[in-house]
Nucleic acid binder design. Structure first.
Lengths: 337, 337
DNA sequence: TTGTAAGCGTTATCAC
DNA sequence: GTGATAACGCTTACAA
């Protein structure tokens, strides 16, 4: 099986050329789909390629073209369900288009850390970057930065602007809040995400919009950190004040922790207090009580991010996607007053 | 700020050489920490490097050395909590050692798909591969394959053999089963993972070992698919047979679904049936009832995988790690008979 | 200790 | 339509 005598060497473009009886440049033309090449010659080259199982050397190509066909993923999240699902689909979509994927996790959200990460990726000469940077701070730094390559940010504002791509978080939050209002609740609290997070702001805005429109009182949101542990803690605290009958938690983890806290305090969900979340993580339907929440199509967002990025890389027109509308999932953690 | 007139060009090793008044080869020596170089010369070169903010071109280096300082991650899991946590820590650890990371998700566990993924990575000339391939089939294919570069498999057998790295799943499963036995249970079911999964086998073995040692009857395990939905379904089915008082589910998702199924059937957990899980996912402590489970240090496993892989790549002796012992987390889903 | 020459495998440029 | 020839930016010889 192995090459006779000398060490196995990967065939190069010149080996193909020799076998096909053409110059290596002609082989290169075939590889790059150059228009003017005789069909017969092309055939001979293609045969030689398949006989030798020749694969172009990516490093050599990158050296001469300064393009690597690699996309970088910049991630500032710590293994949460949503971003993780998006990243997996980004990888799949990119590979399907012939691009490799390299990932950098941000150790911190400081401008220095962000700069380091971007520099790292640009040293690797990535063709483009998808940033999952849910913090306002990171977003702003990226926006103001001369990145040097196309960049798409997978965000959660309420629209897309060619740079940003997102599900309509505001609409989702609004929908779930309106659901509580429809159930007859008038005193609805919001357990929000951390100050700096774009998603936290969007979801809070949806909440506020819905309440204002219904002429209901708004309460100052409680700021959480997305964790179930915080939700649990908040549940204990909130149990002392009973000026509300429903809580919209900005994500499912906090919602589940919150229900735990209420349970510890002897508050029955949903009889005494309704709780709703956001994200529809895999356990949401199975906790007690099953959690009313907003389903997000994370993989689709990842695919679209790649679609936009590749269009920009190739200098094509950006695809026009319809809105990614989060879907309400009604379960029994919310009930009529 | 920009270069005068002509387009900004990244400085090359020759620019550094010119500025430092040496040959480009001397610069290369400084870069590669060649021993014989006069301190004074080195200093001049280093100064020039920092003045120009010179960064070696990775593609050029890869072309000539055939090594990319990139490690490939081969992942055959669909965004689950554990593997995801490990992957994040693999990325961080690799970057900290100056390696880039590229990821490939397996679309299927067929030998063809695995072969494609490996070929893909080897085309990118990765220096080594970490495989998160929890299926027996994938594991065997990898093992029998001439990958061509160092490979470490993040597995879950009961030991490490220089190729494999794992937490001791058997011990963890055994511990949680013994916990049930200590509580006085004698009829303990096992809701296992899918047939082909190594973790499923290890956890099942721990269960069987514990029961045999205690001279208790074993039941044929129910085969699940790791999902909460399946757990829910299984709960409904099991509710019809009441020949058991405890269930060890092979992961937390199934355990949570199972408790949901029992709840639907009017079975009280833990009064009538105890349930325990495995993994300690973030919601485990917050569901009702809080889930007794086995905590795994996924990030540590990822770091160790990188440690082993880099040792192999560099031709060093593999680091000797102690066992990663899963930790029992006792909560109220398990109770005395 | 340092410099010169050659070559890694490809694409770009210019002939023919 | 096709073929020389010259880069791309680096490392590995070999020479001085």
């Amino acid at each position: 099986m192995a090459a006779s005598g000398d060490r196995a060497r990967v065939p190069s473009i010149r080996d193909v050329a020799r076998l096909a009886g053409v110059s290596h440049q002609t082989v290169s033309r075939v590889l790059n789909e150059h228009p003017s090449i005789r069909p017969e010659t092309r055939k001979r080259v293609e045969d030689a390629i398949s006989v030798l199982d020749y694969k172009p050397n990516l490093a050599a190509r990158a050296l001469v073209t300064s393009r690597t066909h690699t996309i970088g993923v910049l991630s500032a999240t710590i293994g949460e369900f949503g971003p993780t699902s998006s990243i997996a689909s980004i990888e799949d979509a990119a590979r399907a288009e012939g691009y490799s994927v390299t990932t950098v996790n941000l150790p911190a959200t400081t401008p220095e850390a962000i700069g380091d990460a971007i520099r790292q990726l640009s040293r690797e000469q990535v063709s483009g970057i998808v940033a999952l940077a849910p913090q306002v701070r990171v977003f702003n730094v990226l926006r103001g930065m001369a990145v040097g390559v196309p960049l798409v940010s997978l965000q959660t504002a309420s629209g897309s602007d060619g740079f940003t791509l997102s599900a309509d978080q505001v609409a989702g939050a609004r929908a779930v809040t309106e659901h509580l209002i429809d159930l007859g609740h008038t005193d609805i609290l919001h357990l929000a995400g951390p100050q700096d997070w774009i998603e936290a702001e969007s979801r809070m805005r949806g909440y506020l919009d819905a309440l204002r429109e219904a002429d209901l009182p708004t309460f100052p949101p409680i700021r959480g950190d997305w964790t179930a542990d915080f939700g649990h803690f908040a549940g204990g605290e909130l149990a002392r004040r009973r000026d509300f009958t429903a809580v919209f938690a900005a994500n499912d983890l906090m919602a589940i922790g919150l229900m735990h806290g209420f349970r510890d305090a002897g508050i029955d969900v949903p009889r005494e207090v309704s709780v709703v979340g956001f994200d529809d993580i895999p356990v949401a339907a199975h906790v007690w009580p099953p959690l009313t929440t907003v389903h997000q199509d994370f993989p689709e967002l990842g695919r679209r991010a790649v679609g936009m990025l590749l269009a920009e890389i190739r200098g094509e027109r950006a695809p026009q996607y319809g809105a990614v509308v989060p879907q309400l999932r009604l379960r029994s953690s919310s009930a009529a007053r």
